[in-house]
Design a binder for these strands. Structure first.
Lengths: 135, 135
DNA sequence: GCATCTATGTTATGTTGTAACACACATAGC
DNA sequence: GCTATGTGTGTTACAACATAACATAGATGC
């Protein structure tokens, strides 16, 4: 299996991935576009096309419930299973984790139904520990 | 606990819920708007406001990965746990299920992290049994 | 050379969701 | 009665998210 680092990124892909890594949290496509205007980006498609590839490579995840994107937290990993996300609605923090047992159960269910599973989206909304503590 | 039927819906809420029930599958807000133009609907907000309430009542679920809405498949039920959805990318069919064991594991994880869980989104993308069979 | 594939740039447009403001109607308290 | 409050509604305008369609440029393989 290919590691993230082994993907040779094009210029635009590298710029988009850099934005997301530096941000340390989720960004919308249009937020990325604004960050990259100084690098010559002019149109949303430049961002979306790069994001499509990065998601395909597994280097970036799409957060469906936020319409946003986040760099995979496994910086140099050799690939991993389906990711899940705990999203704090107070501070916006997003924590990625890999609930293998959960994914296993979901796979069991799909297999029992004859459903050919391609992709799993798991997103938890709530309040993170520090926000619970502070308020 | 209140059952779905026990919620007394306003006119707009009833119209929107009716559209979704009749459709038997997911609809976007704008698709609902078009269906209800003959009933006097003119603007998206009329749909979105009704949907907000219906989702709050648990009578309608939002499918984050489709930006669409679907009537809860438990027609007259007395409420139930978090729902999950298997979405066929070939035929568009959406199957709702209630994976209590999965939700239990996710709750365990959030509790271990001090994360106060408010809402769980689980959406599986793939190909349903009959679409797999037919090629 | 030339076909092909991928990436890119650009304009315009399509789709999804809200802000802000005004009005109607019910109900609770005086 | 009549006022305050809360909720539902209608309307215009706009913001945010995403893609279609077409043109150009560079790399690779034959």
């Amino acid at each position: 299996m290919r590691t993230h680092a082994q993907h040779e990124l094009t210029k635009n892909q590298a710029l988009v991935y850099g934005s997301l890594s530096d941000a340390g949290g989720p960004l919308t496509a249009y937020a990325i576009l604004d960050l990259l205007r100084e690098n010559g980006f002019r149109a949303p498609l430049q961002v979306y096309r790069a994001l499509d590839k990065l998601v395909e490579f597994g280097m970036v995840h799409r957060l469906e419930s936020l319409n946003a994107f986040v760099a995979c937290s496994h910086k140099g990993c050799a690939g991993h299973g389906s990711a899940a996300f705990a999203i704090c609605e107070k501070c916006g923090d997003v924590r990625e984790f890999t609930p293998d047992d959960v994914v296993r159960l979901l796979k069991d269910w799909t297999e029992s139904q004859g459903f050919a599973l391609a992709r799993t989206t798991i997103e938890l909304r709530g309040t993170c520990k520090s926000c619970v503590a502070s308020g």
